[in-house]
């Protein structure tokens, strides 16, 4: 998952946003990929509300007149493993093989 994904993820249980990312292993995508070409826009931040790479809200960064390139890596860096945790309900979700596992534990006992 790219850093940018944290900008849209919320806790599936209590819907708290943003989640706290703890990245353990990362890699860099080549800039030539279709995914990046499509998204790259030098005039705006990659993230729209919260940038997890800088751990700051976009609003705060705008008010501090920070350049938009600061969150460029949010689409370039892939998190291979790590975790996302919810500060409200304390749930933790792992990121494994680049995919965040966002199913609440209670479903694994009964439904999945």
């Amino acid at each position: 998952m790219r850093y940018k994904l944290v900008d849209i993820l919320a806790c599936p249980q209590c819907k708290s946003f943003p989640l706290v990312l703890n990245s353990k292993k990362e890699e860099r995508f080549p800039g030539s990929s279709e995914f990046i070409k499509k998204r790259h826009n030098k005039n705006s931040f990659e993230c729209s509300i919260f940038c997890s790479l800088k751990n700051k809200s976009i609003k705060a960064m705008k008010s501090q007149h920070v350049g938009t390139e600061i969150c460029r890596d949010c689409i370039y860096i892939n998190i291979i493993s790590g975790s996302l945790s919810c500060t409200r309900c304390k749930a933790e979700y792992v990121v494994e093989d680049s995919i965040p596992r966002m199913i609440p534990k209670r479903f694994f006992k009964t439904h999945i």
Partner: peptide
């Protein structure tokens, strides 16, 4: 995860359920 790992398109992937979607409003 098995299905996501075999995806035919390069984009973001998330394991999740309809009933408890892991996205903000």
């Amino acid at each position: 995860i098995e299905m996501l790992e075999n995806s035919v398109i390069d984009c973001d992937k998330v394991q999740g359920l309809f009933e408890a979607m892991p996205f903000r409003d």
